[in-house]
């Protein structure tokens, strides 16, 4: 196999890796917000369920969760799971990362002084206005470093999709390594992850800098 075939074969996998990454970010960031609110719900039962959910998501290996999401519908309900591979992966990743993001958000909201809410209330801001205009921008600034860490972890975690035989980049690297008895694919994979994470870190740093105008 020539290097260019290797690269183009792995390139298809990189697209799938990127798909997992971006779809997970797209769903888990807002979902984390929902989980955070459920965790502070007025209803005790909702709070308990959410806490159990977070504990499971953080306390069990993501690989196991992926198997659960994919095969669960068949074993529990006898459902036909054809074509369900990518959705299962996205659900698995999003639910897992949402749990982590929820905890990060919670920490972020706790850094906002009560006075900010009171000032907004006295000035007549509505609930949604207070949340989106006053509180959320400050929370985002506070949580940015922790979110960056999670996002970088996610880039590397995408390789866990091999559990469900979704041919993302790392699965292909392993297959090429087996067929070519060569270490080269792993080197390429390493370079790819490094560049991807460098881009993430660079982007997040730019955002952090852009929010640096206030303390």
């Amino acid at each position: 196999m020539t290097l260019s075939t290797m690269l183009s074969t792995m390139g298809a996998g990189m697209l799938r890796t990127c798909a997992i990454f971006f779809l997970t970010i797209l769903f888990s960031l807002p979902l984390g917000m929902v989980v955070m609110f459920l965790r502070q719900s007025r209803f005790g039962i909702v709070r308990v369920i959410t806490k159990i959910y977070i504990a499971i998501m953080r306390g069990t290996p993501l690989m196991l969760q992926l198997l659960m999401w994919y095969f669960g519908p068949y074993y529990l309900f006898g459902m036909n799971i054809r074509g369900y591979r990518l959705p299962a992966i996205i659900i698995g990743f999003s639910m897992n990362y949402a749990a982590y993001f929820a905890e990060i958000y919670r920490g972020g909201f706790e850094t906002i002084p009560k006075g900010q809410y009171e000032a907004a209330e006295v000035l007549g801001y509505s609930g949604p206005q207070t949340f989106f205009k006053i509180i959320l921008p400050q929370v985002i600034k506070a949580i940015l470093p922790s979110v960056t860490n999670e996002v970088i972890t996610l880039v590397k975690d995408t390789s866990l999709a091999f559990t469900l035989a979704y041919n993302e980049m790392f699965s292909i690297a392993k297959q090429i390594a087996a067929s070519q008895t060569s270490f080269m694919p792993f080197v390429i994979a390493g370079v790819f992850y490094f560049i991807a994470n460098y881009a993430v870190a660079f982007g997040m740093e730019r955002i952090e800098k852009a929010l640096d105008y206030y303390r």
């Binding site: 002084p113 006075g115 900010q116 009171e118 000032a119 006295v122 000035l123 007549g124 801001y125 509505s126 206005q129 205009k133 006053i134 921008p137 400050q138 600034k141 929010l211 206030y214 303390r215």
Partner: peptide
């Protein structure tokens, strides 16, 4: 009514001008 707090409670992410202008525009 309006209220002035002991701890000011200005919005740190808004400029001075925006702190003053935002509520009249967004609320009123």
């Amino acid at each position: 009514f309006g209220l002035v707090f002991q701890q000011f409670n200005l919005f740190p992410h808004y400029s001075v001008l925006k702190n003053i202008m935002d509520a009249p525009i967004a609320v009123q």
